[in-house]
């Protein structure tokens, strides 16, 4: 793997890491498997792209994107809590609805972001080489996201959220409306996912309605790899592990795609197979380790 490819993979790991933090919040903290993310990632991209091409500041466009994602999460969570639709189904419904909505927002399946200002221009304007600007911007966003979410989960409200995922019966008896907490949590999660999508779009120079496919799989893969490799003893550690897991995941994919054994090499279309194998290895690794230790 060339240095260039490695930088690219770390960059991807950081920007999608923001999405992974969102997935960790729903999947692990709230115990709410949420597939909305496959729709809210391109939603963020679409909103940001439309805002920028309409002349809004690229940073402001990120705020719009995050708000859009938040609303998408709220829809899923309301369907689940208030209308008693199974969480998986509720999130799938929102996800497919978002496919149409995203095309409406963009008035087409994609929008190019060429020759417009993006969040990277502010960094390159400081004299940073263009190929590092992604690392810096994504790194800053990802680290701030981890810090913010860890802080949030230490507040009264955040502690109630942790407890809601852990023991809903108990927090209800302590006067917490678990519905409100779930709606807020799934909203925040999808806000982060949309933010991640908006940054990806600005980086790759286009928003595309198909860019969200497989988001949840990549998210879960990163979460599981992060937990297996870096542990999840405390909240701070768990979220840092999720972010690092995202980087490891992208590096592993880059490594696999660059692999050449004799005449064989992987195609980009083998990505899903590689992801599945990665997740399976991460899931069975702790088991295997225990068994070997016992001998």
């Amino acid at each position: 793997m060339t240095l260039y490819a490695a930088i690219g993979a770390v960059e991807q790991g950081l920007v999608y890491g923001i999405m992974v933090i969102g997935v960790y919040l729903t999947f692990r903290i709230l115990d709410f498997p949420d597939l909305t993310v496959d729709g809210s990632l391109p939603l963020g991209a679409a909103i940001s792209a439309v805002a920028i091409t309409s002349g809004y500041n690229p940073y402001l466009s990120l705020v719009f994107a995050a708000m859009g994602g938040f609303l998408a999460g709220v829809v899923t969570a309301v369907l689940n809590t208030k209308f008693k639709i199974l969480h998986l189904l509720a999130s799938i419904l929102t996800m497919i609805a978002l496919y149409s909505i995203n095309i409406r927002i963009m008035s087409g399946p994609n929008i190019a972001l060429l020759g417009v200002d993006t969040v990277f221009d502010a960094v390159t304007a400081l004299g940073v080489p263009a190929y590092y600007s992604g690392l810096i911007v994504f790194g800053l966003f990802a680290v701030c996201t981890v810090l913010l979410i860890v802080w949030f989960l230490s507040t009264e409200l955040g502690q109630a959220m942790l407890a809601t995922g852990d023991n809903p019966q108990m927090v209800t008896s302590l006067g917490v409306n678990t519905h409100t907490i779930i709606i807020l949590g799934v909203g925040i999660s999808n806000g982060l996912v949309a933010l991640s999508g908006a940054l990806v779009a600005q980086n790759q120079g286009a928003a595309d309605v198909g860019m969200g496919i497989g988001t949840i799989v990549a998210g879960l893969a990163s979460v599981i790899i992060g937990e297996t490799v870096f542990g999840s003893k405390s909240i701070a550690r768990a979220f840092t592990a999720a972010l690092l897991g995202s980087i490891v995941y992208r590096l592993a994919i880059a490594l696999a795609l660059g692999l050449e054994i004799g005449g064989f090499s992987f195609n980009p279309s083998d990505l899903n197979l590689i992801t599945a194998i990665l997740v399976i290895s991460a899931l069975i690794a702790p088991n295997l380790k225990n068994r070997l230790m016992q001998r």
Partner: peptide, 26 residues
């Protein structure tokens, strides 16, 4: 009780029973 939370975190949840929970320290 909440198993993954500490003893003090559990008690802190209880001390807010029926009260607004905001962004103050848990």
């Amino acid at each position: 009780t909440c198993p993954s939370a500490t003893i003090e975190q559990n008690l802190a949840l209880a001390i807010k029973r029926g009260k607004k929970r905001g962004l103050g320290r848990g």
